[in-house]
């Protein structure tokens, strides 16, 4: 579904990704781990299309399309979802309004019928129950005044409404207490199926107890230096990244 070949990317003059390769098949969950500054978040931003990240070499194929050729919102409509490490506050813009605008823009792009407000309301009600989240978040402006945990949960809720094909979770676990972590993981697990894939970027093995990955990769200095299964994460927890120095 996703095929990343030899990606080089930089922000300004700072070269961050230096020949990264990764292939993801439908239904797979890939965890990306690695030390600070290795380029983990940049990988997510490259896939989502952040403009200040410049791709200088390489290609990304997503479901048969050249992903790098698409606008940010086109990628979203094609099924890429990025759960932000730092979700952005948009003062004064109602969460519900925002989400329906997003969903309908995506549906329109895909030639699907736009959802009217009552259909949308029904969908929201079902999802919010499934996600075990409080509905007062919906009435508030997007992320404004949300606690760190609330912001992360809101990301997962948005994901459940938008039903992407590939979701990238950028350190969604950071700053969460164990209860919030379980809610987030539960939300992700509910969405797991044979056609939907995930890239889970994380520092800690802890999240992977709840979201069990098919593969674990270690990203260091802009490249994937090691890949394995879940046991790699457990090993890393014990050994840390010191071995990368050697």
């Amino acid at each position: 579904m996703l095929n990343i070949k030899n990606i080089h990317a930089q922000v300004g003059d700072n070269k961050i990704l230096k020949g990264l390769n990764l292939e993801i098949k439908p239904g797979e969950v890939h965890a990306i781990m690695g030390p600070n500054g290795a380029g983990k978040s940049t990988l997510g931003n490259v896939l989502a299309g952040m403009e200040k990240v410049e791709v200088t070499q390489g290609s990304v194929d997503f479901l048969g399309k050249d992903l790098l050729d698409l606008e940010i919102e086109q990628r979203a409509a094609e099924g890429i979802f990025l759960a932000f490490q730092y979700p952005v506050e948009i003062p004064g813009v109602n969460n519900m309004y925002f989400l329906r605008a997003a969903l309908n823009a995506q549906r329109k792009y895909r030639g699907e019928k736009e959802m009217n407000s009552s259909e949308f309301l029904k969908l929201v009600r079902t999802k919010i129950k499934q996600m075990n989240m409080r509905d007062d978040l919906l009435r508030r402006p997007v992320n404004e005044g949300f606690s760190g945990g609330e912001k992360k949960r809101n990301e997962i809720f948005q994901m459940s409404i938008l039903e992407p094909k590939l979701a990238i979770l950028d350190e969604t676990d950071s700053g969460l207490d164990i209860d919030a972590l379980k809610i987030v993981a539960d939300g992700v697990n509910q969405l797991r199926d044979d056609n939907r894939s995930f890239i889970v970027i994380t520092h800690y093995q802890r999240l992977l107890d709840y979201i069990v990955p098919d593969y674990v990769h270690v990203l260091a200095d802009g490249k994937i230096v090691r890949s394995g299964d879940k046991s790699l994460a457990i090993e890393l927890e014990k050994t840390g990244y010191g071995w990368l120095e050697d």
């Binding site: 299309g49 919102e73 952005v88 402006p141």
Partner: peptide, 30 residues
């Protein structure tokens, strides 16, 4: 308008024009 806000909206599938109008509406909410 902050680049971050625009990126966030666009990542969710909203066009730049709609995102701008949404952010401006929010700016005027008070």
């Amino acid at each position: 308008i902050s680049e971050d806000q625009l990126f966030y909206c666009k990542q969710r599938g909203i066009s730049e024009e709609d995102a701008t109008s949404m952010i401006v509406d929010g700016f005027c909410k008070e």
